[in-house]
Design a protein around this nucleic acid. Structure first.
Length: 257
DNA sequence: AGAACCGCCTGCTTGC
DNA sequence: TGCAAGCAGGCGGTTC
């Protein structure tokens, strides 16, 4: 599932390919997306990201906001035949961008272009003090808080597990009981892990592929996610899998107290 | 007000 | 072998 590094990878690729390009046509293949109006003739002026949201800016002060949710992908294809699970297509002079989404959770909206604030995005202008003031005393498990997109954007299930492991914080620890040092450690580790994942062009643990259909390399960097029963690379403890907020959660009971 | 739960979807895995 | 049931999960909406 696309989280911050995967979305960032797509945005960088999109920016190179379509900035300055004119949209030749758009095609909807899924009734759920029937509300997307035709964008023929519009010119893409920029592509950027806020959290897990992709924003494609147009020359009429509007933007296309794409959220890939669970299984959504964007594919750059010269072929005009719809790929399997293709839900929407935006055509340019020499190729097309297909929204491919087996589970049909992805959303596409056309709205007025907004200034990106980025104060909740750990890789943009994250406001640590505002975060702690608003969310630092919550009586929710820390993993749920760092996955709460109203609190901090971009972190999904895989990176939440990895961040808490490297920060040595138990995922079920109540947010309000964390020390300022533990929070600082989480923010610092989050930046480090997400930066590396961007360099590795994302985590292809299930079906993530970039705009060109290539897998990323960050799956080889995972320390706990998907590794239940295996030894922790840090302390040798046995990695455990639990359910937290309905989501599979991996951690090392020896490192993460 | 804040925390927990539900529903949206469909491919894949598991069990009989 | 085949089919049904269970699972996965981001996030908005609803309920507790």
């Amino acid at each position: 599932m696309p989280e911050l590094p995967e979305v960032e990878t797509l945005c960088r690729q999109l920016q190179k390919k379509i900035t300055g390009q004119k949209i030749a046509s758009t095609t909807v293949y899924d009734d759920k997306l029937a509300h997307i109006r035709d964008l023929k003739g519009r010119i893409v002026t920029d592509v950027r990201r806020d959290g897990k949201m992709i924003e494609i800016l147009l020359d009429n002060k509007e933007s296309i906001f794409i959220h890939l949710r669970m299984s959504g992908r964007l594919l750059w294809l010269a072929d005009t035949n719809r790929p399997k699970y293709g839900r929407w297509r935006m055509s340019f002079a020499d190729a097309n961008i297909y929204l491919v989404d087996p589970r049909r959770f992805a959303t596409v909206k056309i709205l007025k272009t907004k200034d990106i604030v980025g104060d909740k995005d750990i890789m943009l202008g994250f406001d640590q003090h505002a975060f702690l003031a608003k969310h630092g005393r919550r009586k929710t498990k820390v993993k749920s808080v760092i996955m709460d997109q109203n609190a901090i954007t971009g972190i999904g299930n895989i990176y939440a597990c990895e961040i808490l492991h490297l920060a040595a914080v138990h995922p079920e620890k109540i947010a309000a009981t964390l020390t300022p040092q533990e929070w600082r450690q989480i923010f610092s580790v989050a930046k480090k892990i997400l930066k590396k994942a961007i360099q590795k062009r994302g985590t292809s643990i299930s079906d993530w592929r970039d705009l060109d259909g290539c897998p990323g390399e960050n799956q080889h960097e995972l320390k706990v996610y998907g590794r239940a029963g295996q030894g922790c690379g840090h302390c040798g403890g046995i990695i455990r899998r639990i359910k937290l907020g309905g989501r599979g959660t991996y951690y090392c009971p020896d490192c993460q107290k």
